[in-house]
């Protein structure tokens, strides 16, 4: 019996906690000051997926964050879930997926890996471009939107979710796998793990990046709600109104 172990790289994104972000009530513009950062939910799914493979087959999980000043706390969260080594690359300046992909791929190229795992999209911008870009930069196949990962000796099998059906795909190592939210329920690390994680070392690096974008933002505002907002707390009054509205729509 051969025991296979895997070198897994997991890419972690830290985003502004958009659930806590508000918009200015007069201008509609986003208020980002004072909003805390959080580990993007799909990154947690990616970390969990990587750690589960390590726990089952053995191997090592290296986490990489392209981020900023607050990224060490995110890496500690990843450590608590089970990531072995962490690299934080500082210099993330904003939403340019091409730049992010370049910085991450350059780092990945210096490491040994069988699988690169990341979330398929992130909750702030939903661009979903990073898996394709990194696959292109590394020249390795992309097994995307995975809800299950089954590593075998030379290949890995992945169940991929598509809009109207699922497919099972196979690719030879090294591969990049993007995960969909349904793949797992990320664990809540035990207090002891969190304390231990806090003491572990994180490799801090810096990327020198220049962002030459042709994109200029004309406006960034909350869409105005022009709804009538006729809300009833008295059901006796509300039900006849709703019934009328529904009947009209059914015509």
């Amino acid at each position: 019996m051969i025991y296979l172990t895997y070198n897994i790289i997991v890419l972690i994104k830290q985003i502004l906690d958009i659930d806590q972000m508000k918009t200015n009530s007069t201008t509609g513009e986003p208020i980002t000051d004072g909003v805390p950062m959080r580990v993007e939910n799909l990154s947690k799914n990616a970390i969990e997926a990587a750690v589960r493979i390590k726990e089952k087959y053995g191997g090592k999980v290296t986490g990489i964050i392209f981020g900023g000043e607050q990224s060490s706390s995110a890496m500690k969260e990843a450590y608590a879930i089970g990531v072995d080594d962490g690299i934080v690359i500082k210099g993330y300046s904003g939403r340019n997926p091409a730049l992010t992909a370049k910085v991450l791929s350059e780092k990945i190229k210096t490491l040994q890996y069988d699988m690169v795992i990341l979330g398929n999209q992130s909750a702030d911008t939903y661009t979903g471009l990073l898996p394709g870009k990194i696959s292109s930069l590394l020249g390795i196949p992309l097994l995307g939107n995975a809800i299950s990962i089954d590593p075998e000796e030379k290949e890995v099998k992945v169940t991929r979710v598509l809009e109207d059906h699922n497919v099972v795909l196979k690719g030879s190592y090294p591969v990049i796998i993007s995960v969909s939210q349904e793949i797992n329920e990320p664990r809540l690390p035990a207090v002891l793990q969190i304390i231990k994680a806090g003491k572990r070392e994180i490799k801090i690096e810096k990327a020198a990046v220049t962002d030459a974008s042709s994109i200029s933002v004309i406006s960034d505002r909350a869409p105005k709600s022009e709804r009538k907002k006729e809300i009833y707390e008295d059901q006796e009054k509300g039900i006849p109104v709703l019934t009328r509205v529904i009947k009209e729509a059914m015509l």
Binding site: G28, P30, I215, S216, V217, S219, D220
Partner: peptide, 8 residues
């Protein structure tokens, strides 16, 4: 939460 209009 917001709509961004961009020129590029």
């Amino acid at each position: 939460k917001t709509v961004t209009e961009e020129e590029s």
